[in-house]
């Protein structure tokens, strides 16, 4: 009777095991370079971008959907912010606040649009967000004519490159984003309903849950998280451009699934995703120290993904057989 619970735990423990294994291998493979302050700091600056985007992806995946437009949303929001920053309306601090507001405003609006398309028009999420992804990529290109907007004030650069109390600022943003997401998922009505809808939207409808409102809020949250990622991205690159971070899109799905988010919806938790992200980052930084091509890292990410899915399948199978 306790099986499903233990199974969830087991999946996380497989994940923790892999993380520890990967860390040990990387430490041994890079004696004297992996466990250094520089490397740690490097990892702490790199992880948040992918991390925040993965949170944006996971929240819709739990609802049983997918959001292919997260990167396009982030770029669009980043570009709007960058244009405001460059045009310098009023004092730098006014410009900064305006840009911040515009960035989150644009990303929320796109999130809302996705939500309406999925929940109200009832488009399949993958197609609705593929459409908005293409559309907003296009609008970004039209606005920028494909060029880069670069060169921001120190305040902006601080978001992605600064350090507070010895901790890289983007990492703080990521941690805060992760905690807020965790509270959203576990302690709010919308978060609660989200899991239920992800498992069986018919039953939630029959239980008086307003599926449409919950789904629209879900895509809204995903949009807002893309906007937060946009801030970190433009600050780290010190520029905005359409097409930045395109390769992250499918990686976020990979990271979320690796972190225990069920692609069919209904299950997933923030801690699992954070562990998966750390694992991926350790692999990536470790290989980088070994001067291995970043593409080999990508290949290994893919391989680990398959290995984890297969292992989980086998564990589950053995369990059901072992129970007899």
């Amino acid at each position: 009777m306790m099986r499903p619970l233990r199974l969830e735990k087991k999946e996380t423990s497989v994940l923790v095991g892999i993380m520890i294994l990967v860390i040990i291998i990387m430490v041994l493979a890079n004696p004297g370079t992996f466990l250094t302050y520089t490397n740690m700091k490097g990892m702490a600056y790199q992880l948040p971008e992918l991390g925040i985007l993965t949170l944006a992806m996971m929240v819709v995946m739990i609802s049983g959907g997918i959001n292919l437009s997260i990167i396009a949303t982030a770029n669009m929001a980043g570009i709007v912010a960058a244009i405001i920053l460059k045009s310098q309306p009023g004092s730098p601090s006014v410009a900064f606040l305006l840009a911040l507001g515009a960035c989150l405003g644009v990303s929320s609006a796109i999130g809302l649009l996705n939500g309406v398309l999925v929940a109200f028009v009832e488009m399949p999420p993958i197609l609705a967000t593929l459409g908005t992804m293409t559309l907003f990529n296009g609008i970004s290109i039209v606005i920028t004519k494909g060029y880069v907007i670069s060169g921001f004030s120190p305040a902006v650069l601080y978001i992605g490159n600064g350090m507070l109390l010895g901790i890289p600022f983007p990492l703080l943003i990521f941690l805060l984003a992760a905690i807020v997401m965790s509270i959203f998922l576990r302690k709010t009505r919308t978060g609660f309903s989200l899991f239920m809808i992800g498992s069986n939207a018919m039953a939630t409808k029959f239980s008086g849950i307003n599926n449409m409102a919950v789904l629209i809020r879900t895509y809204l949250v995903s949009g807002i998280y893309s906007g937060i990622a946009a801030l970190v991205m433009i600050s780290r690159f010190n520029s905005a451009k359409s097409g930045y971070g395109d390769s992250y899109l499918l990686i976020t799905i990979l990271a979320a699934v690796l972190g225990g988010v069920k692609s069919e919806g209904g299950f997933g938790n923030v801690s699992g995703v954070v562990i998966a992200l750390i694992t991926l980052q350790v692999l990536s930084s470790g290989f980088n120290l070994l001067r291995v091509s970043s593409f080999l890292t990508t290949a290994i990410w893919g391989f680990i993904m398959i290995a984890v899915m297969v292992t989980n399948f086998l564990i589950e199978n053995r369990k059901t057989r072992g129970a007899t």
Binding site: S263, L296, T298, M305, I306, M309, V310
Partner: peptide, 30 residues
């Protein structure tokens, strides 16, 4: 992989895409 291990096709193929493409770039050196 999809049939034997009941992994959702989208996940399987994202994973194999990364695997295939990563290896290609590594061996072709781009």
């Amino acid at each position: 992989l999809i049939d034997r291990f009941a992994v959702p096709p989208i996940i399987t193929t994202i994973a194999t895409m990364n695997l295939y493409y990563g290896l290609l770039i590594v061996f072709s050196k781009g």
